[in-house]
Amino acid sequence: MARAADCGPDRGARVMLEISLRHRLSGFTLDLALSAPSGVTALFGPSGAGKTTVVNAVAGLLRPEQGRIAVGGEVLLDTGANICLPPHKRRIGYVFQDARLFPHLSVRANLLYGRRFAPVSRDGAEFDRVVAMLGLEALLERRPAALSGGEKSRVALGRALLCAPRMLLMDEPLAALDAARKEEILPYFERLRDEVQLPILYVSHAPAEVARLATSVALIEAGHLRGFGPAREVLSDPGLAPSLGMREAGAVISGQVAGQEADGLARIETAGGPVLLPYPTGQPGQALRLRIHAGDVTLARGRPEGLSALNILPARITQIRPAEAPSVYVQLALGPERLLARLTTRSVAALGLTEGMECHAIIKAMSVASEDVLGR
């Protein structure tokens, strides 16, 4: 099996999901292996890369030519040992693009249907916990036809959770939703990631979703892993940035709300220094993440003066990688965090930028959109 050099979980994290697959598809052979911790592992890449094939193999809907899949140490598939549990014995919750709710049943009945597949009887407290976590209290007596797309997705997720799965599979669950509905449901997905100790395999080709939700990222192209590791490392890797797309390449950095300035700007403390944003971002002390697009970062060798840009952060150049001509991706260290800048080759040459050089990263306050201010 092909294995990317960095295919491993966060250092010190317990491996919860092991996938090793080889299977011929139309046009290429899926050949990959990864080991991931609990949390959200995003399978990210272009359409047709093999993401859904991986998910279907985990669910038991496809038997690969060769492979081994284990969740929490329990083997679901091992073609070498002739082990292949059928889907109903894998205890995996699968949330599809379309919610696939029973139209003749109420939300309550749809949720209780999921509980029928739990290996042991689930009490009412578990039902109430899932309903509260997903904000379904006011929807219980409605039928699916009376729900928005985001509400249907939350009900489908609740049904999957109530079957007491050992893991969750989510195949582009937001793909059919418009921007408003996505924004409605994303906080619930974040809460699921933070509160439910399950491995979650999340298929997406939307970088914004991946940046917001993923704990780990597996970047898949033509059936092979281009990169795998903690989300912050993969998303800020200049060698992988071209695969994310010129408009979407960037990095995610951690921050904490320090408060509101007198002129209305929000002050966020980061490892590189304070970042000012033009809208409220939460209560003081609240942890969050900022998604900074590579195209919104410019560099200066010394600290510049007389600029309208408010965010000027000292940084160190760690990598310089060529991109789509005439562009270059520059990875920057902000303490333990990583930032990514996309510059022209002419600018890099004119400034004499080299790896290891100290510089300043400049980020316009207005360039960070509200949707790029992410939950913890």
Rank of each mutant, 00 (worst) to 15 (best):
R181D: 12
L235S: 00
P187A: 10
I253C: 00
G223H: 06
L169R: 02
L169F: 07
G295E: 08
L34I: 06
P278C: 09
E269G: 07
N110A: 04
L169Q: 05
L299G: 02
L105V: 07
G259T: 02
A214Y: 08
A231T: 09
R24E: 14
P87L: 10
L62I: 11
F44K: 08
S370F: 11
T318H: 01
P314C: 10
A175S: 15
L265R: 14
V297P: 00
D31N: 13
V252D: 01
L313Q: 08
R166A: 12
A262Q: 13
I220V: 15
L140M: 10
K152Y: 02
A36M: 04
T344W: 04
M16S: 14
D263Y: 13
A99Y: 10
L157K: 01
L168H: 01
G306H: 05
R90N: 12
G245F: 07
A323D: 14
L34H: 03
L276F: 15
R143H: 11
P87F: 10
Q260I: 14
A218V: 08
K152T: 01
P187V: 08
L32Y: 07
S38G: 15
A99W: 03
L77I: 11
P165M: 01
R100H: 14
A208R: 14
L174Y: 08
L62V: 13
F228C: 04
R338H: 13
L147V: 07
G302R: 12
A323N: 09
P207W: 01
G72W: 11
A145K: 11
D171G: 03
